[in-house]
Design a protein around this nucleic acid. Structure first.
Lengths: 215, 215
DNA sequence: TCCTTTGCAAGACAACTGTAACAAAAAGAA
DNA sequence: TTCTTTTTGTTACAGTTGTCTTGCAAAGGA
């Protein structure tokens, strides 16, 4: 066999270029020719590693989801309870360049997922995974006595995840919301509201995530 | 002068057709030809009442925003305090066909607004108006003693609005979230959490909105 | 009646898209 | 070297899109 190329690696490289474009200019701007130009390869190469443009988009979304999922599992390994809860929820809030790019990517795909069933399914499983991580952190916190035991972890998880995503997208559209988001952390605010009546846990300074994939 | 046509009325009709298409198939599918075919007019007519496709999209967004804004002001006239608060927040949660259509429209425009500055500005002012309505309802509730006076109305408004929108978009992508949303009302849950410590206000059954514009 | 202005339809045009077919190149195997 | 297979580049093609121009119909004013 001649010329050896790691297909998965090459696909990953192409997906990264795709995600760059999506993050900057949206999915509509992510044409095959644009991906080809930016990557330095020709359009034929894109066709060689992906069946379709649709296939390429799906690959990009999978890659983005993978990055956030890895972040979450890593957080759950290093932290626990309320600290982990806050870290996971703030992992997708656009407070720095990296998270801003990720946010934009996901919100573009959210819209696309409302018309493309394949993308929707991928987003569904991504959201499910996110909620599961949050649910686990909530259970931890309950076990430690940092959150009331009578709360339904799954419900609270869905709500907190919705809050984080909703404020994120609003902040991308309205600089006022962005400013507010930078000043106070709504995630911590509402978690403390949940913990009301219990001895307030000490505020944990979020360990800055550094070595996670940069998109 | 010959042939009299109410330009604003005609523009509104065309925008409604546009919103239909956007709601069903997204903004990318809302081509000028498609709008022309659906409306029964020719593409020339679209060009006669709108300068651009961009202009047409902006018109559609303005129309959608107008519908929700009217809803909010109407609620504020008929209800007050926590009842108004809940009504306004649930006005854009996809619990029936009408609100589902509105939700889809807005989330498509959210994505579009991240790349088109004109649309973004319109969305920004729409979000601001929404928060203002919620803020007013919160102040009412505080005045009535239904919510703690030490809460910052603006902050809480931004958070609640973010929660509503975030859960809405998640429910459009994940049927599990949708089911959860139908079972319990997260909006009421968190508002009651806010009111914790105060005498719980009686649950108000939301008056079904009927005579609001159907998109 | 004729004329002018507006509403509307139809088509032309250039630009851009996804896709596929074909050719060239590259590199290990014989 | 020569052959074979994979990778890559180039090109063509059909379909869509936004935009603009042109022409016709309609209706009120003179």
């Amino acid at each position: 066999m001649p010329r050896l190329v790691d297909h998965n690696e090459r696909r990953r490289q192409i997906c990264d270029v795709l995600l760059d474009i999506v993050s900057e200019a949206g999915i509509a701007a992510a044409t095959i020719r644009e991906v080809a130009d930016r990557s330095g390869w020709s359009t034929g190469v894109i066709g060689h590693y992906f069946n379709n443009r649709q296939d390429l988009l799906l690959g990009g979304l999978r890659r983005a989801a993978e990055i956030l999922a890895e972040h979450n599992t890593r957080v759950l390994k290093t932290l626990e309870g309320i600290a982990a809860l806050e870290q996971i929820l703030e992992g997708s809030i656009p407070l720095d360049k990296r998270r801003l790019a990720l946010c934009r990517i996901f919100f573009f795909f959210y819209a696309e997922g409302m018309t493309e069933e394949e993308l929707r399914q991928e987003l569904e499983s991504y959201l499910l995974g996110w909620r599961k991580s949050v649910t686990r952190a909530i259970r931890d916190a309950q076990a430690q006595g940092d959150l009331p035991a009578e709360l339904d972890p799954k419900r609270i998880a869905a709500d907190l995840v919705g809050l984080a995503d909703g404020l994120s997208i609003h902040s991308l559209l309205d600089p006022r919301v962005m400013a507010q988001l930078r000043e106070h952390s709504p995630v911590r605010f509402w978690i403390r509201r949940l913990a009301a009546g219990l001895p307030a846990g000490e505020a944990v300074e979020p360990a800055q995530a550094k070595n996670y994939a940069v998109v």
